[in-house]
Amino acid sequence: MNPAGDDSATTTTTTTTEAADGDLQRALEASLRDVGTMSAQEQDRLTIDQLNDIVATIAQEQPMVGAKVGISEALAAEYAENPMKGFALGIDILNAKYSAMRRVRKDGNCFYRGFLYRYLEALVLAQQQQPTTIPELVRIREVVKGSKKKLLDVGYDESAMDMFWEMFAELLDQVPSLTPDALHLKLNDEQGVSNHVVWFCRALSATQIKLNADRFAPFIMGEDGLADVDKFCRTEVEPVNHECEQVQIIALTEMLQVPVTIEYLDASGHPSSIVFPEGAHPTVKLLYRPGHYDILYDTTD
């Protein structure tokens, strides 16, 4: 059920920024193992400072979304030393199927960021070729417009949500005047709307889960065997930098009615492709490696 939790084929990690998102927490935990003698307060301080440091280092060294690069060019070197040859076989298969990829920053937001970037990029490209507003842009604006009431209905605070909702709606309004390059700059601007629109995807995902609590509950069972949908959203969806699992992916694709294909690359030598929802024909395609998502481009893109 949970691909993000499956780290049976964890890649070898060398430095902090090389580590996949899933390793952010593990790196932190490892560095905290020797602090058992400190007071709770000192430990908390340390945890927050370390997490901030790790996130800040990643932010300095990696753009939010990188430039387009060839698949084997990007991945082959990364797995050259990997003793599990399945990765190299998998890369060859992906290389035949896809023309390029973009690396997404490994800060725990990679799914939301990659998904939103690729969706908006495709929207900008499609709109560029048309004199009038394309149906998909009309549709998504309506979805986002209608989402505000849903957010408030499930209990979100208007004073907290307004700016996120407004920034997302404004960005969609700007689509007809944007080029892919301008969008790229916008979504890589640390001081701009990028983090806001990415976080709004979390709020949308959480709202869909809350609105369909009965349907999602069986997939979010806690350790105690109980499914607490509100708690799940509060601890697993809403916090910034918290990784995305399949439940959040399903919820976001449902809320926006934007499908996604995910290619799973592991040591098996046979990347598997899963489409959310089943049977759809997504434009947005993401590469998943244990703990991290990047953007993929079809050979026809």
């Binding site: 908390d44 605070d157 907290a160 979390r202 959480a206 509060r234 809403e238 916090p239």
Partner: peptide
């Protein structure tokens, strides 16, 4: 010191909170 130990003021904070 008055320092507080509460998860939402630490790693469980989210922009949904005020």
């Amino acid at each position: 010191t008055g320092a507080i130990c509460l998860d939402i003021l630490k790693d469980q904070w989210s922009p949904a909170l005020t």
